[in-house]
Nucleic acid binder design. Structure first.
Lengths: 147, 147
DNA sequence: CTCCTTATGATACTCAGTATCAACTAATCA
DNA sequence: TGATTAGTTGATACTGAGTATCATAAGGAG
């Protein structure tokens, strides 16, 4: 788990400046354990620091994605969400009913990826495994209202 | 491979009406072998039938997704793309450089999904495996310009 | 052919994300 | 410490995807 200071230091080493808004965004982001949207960040920080601009939030999230601090997630709605990168490789399951998200680790995709690389002649650089289903709570609920 | 007529017939059985715009959209969609956006459909059909409305295209694509004729794909840009569903289960690799898309079949995810269901207590209903990498052409190009 | 219901297209809107640009400021150097 | 300068900011306006609304049009059952 990286600290805000360590991340800001990395930015600095990269020739980026450590500014108030960036510090606020990094600190906020590190507190999130669920996926969040740029709008979530913007709204939360607006309350603390009303002058912060929407564009700055987007720019800083882009920067953090570039630095590998956060990852972009495809939300079914078509908008971007971000999750803080953890050390282990992680993916998410989204509940189709309530939107709850659970993370899981240990996707052993390597053999599958190898066969796909073979089949398509692509050099696979990255993968995103996105699952949807029903969380435990909604499984019960669905049974109750099932036709 | 379904024909336009068969799909329109299914719509009809469902109580939907078979209209000119729907026919045009279904026919266009079936010709596509690469992922396409709603805007692609709209622009192409506008040329043939200039009165067609943007909303109709979105509505019809929603309907076709519901009928299982097309599948929604998450494009890295955050917008939706559609692909015609084929019989076998299919996924795609997107080239990060040129945007080319290749399909592959046979993702043997079942054992992985089972362990995830166990880990998260979700009932997994659907999965989307999205890969990115370099297509064969861009692999060569990257080597040429690599630093 | 008539009638009723669904579908259509024009329009206006929302919402996420981007472009622009003058004003500001972090960091470096003197 | 203060001057310099290049990166950063926030206001604003914009774009582009997708949605809501609603009067009009038209499919299809009878």
């Amino acid at each position: 788990m990286r600290t805000a200071e360590a991340i800001l230091e990395t930015m600095h080493e990269r020739g980026c400046r450590v500014t108030g808004p960036r510090r606020a965004i990094v600190e906020f982001v590190l507190e999130q354990c669920e996926p969040f949207s740029a709008e979530d960040v913007f709204r939360a920080l607006r309350r603390v620091q009303p002058t912060i601009g929407r564009a700055t939030v987007f720019r800083t999230l882009d920067l953090l994605a570039e630095l590998g601090v956060v990852e972009r997630v495809h939300h079914p709605s078509g908008t971007h969400r971000y999750v803080v990168s953890s050390d282990g490789h992680r993916h998410h399951v989204v509940c189709v009913r309530c939107g709850r998200v659970a993370a899981f680790s240990g996707c052993n995709l390597e053999p599958i990826l190898a066969s796909i690389a073979d089949q398509t002649r692509f050099r696979i650089l990255d993968h995103w495994l996105e699952l949807s289903g029903l969380c435990q709570a909604c499984q019960g609920e669905t049974m109750a209202v099932s036709r």
